[in-house]
């Protein structure tokens, strides 16, 4: 129960700000602004091999994935990020 309260306490002040950060980056990649659907599209594109080759597009995506994951952990379990010094 304490952990639930802690997660809620971290989420409340942030509101949907983390979501908007990711939505903006996805919109920049795909040129449209429908983030939930774009996450599914991104997952399908990765599975299909669109980002296999090294290059700017792959690097940009890797950064987005790091940012997305760190935002999730900052809400759900920031202690898990301890020792990850060179995060975005």
């Amino acid at each position: 129960m304490a952990r639930c309260h802690a997660i809620a306490a971290r989420e409340r002040p942030l509101g949907d700000a983390p979501y908007r950060v990711i939505a903006a980056e996805l919109a920049a990649i795909y040129g449209v602004a429908e983030a939930p659907a774009l996450l599914a599209r991104l997952a399908a594109d990765i599975r299909g091999g669109r980002y296999d080759e090294p290059g700017a597009e792959r690097t940009r995506l890797a950064r987005l994935l790091w940012r997305l994951t760190i935002l999730k952990l900052q809400e759900s379990n920031p202690a898990f990020l301890e020792g990850i010094k060179d995060v975005l």
Partner: peptide, 16 residues
């Protein structure tokens, strides 16, 4: 997912 990103990161990605 954090662990996955660490483990599969390739030098050319320079994601962090």
């Amino acid at each position: 997912e954090l662990e996955l990103l660490q483990l599969v990161e390739e030098p050319e990605d320079h994601a962090r």
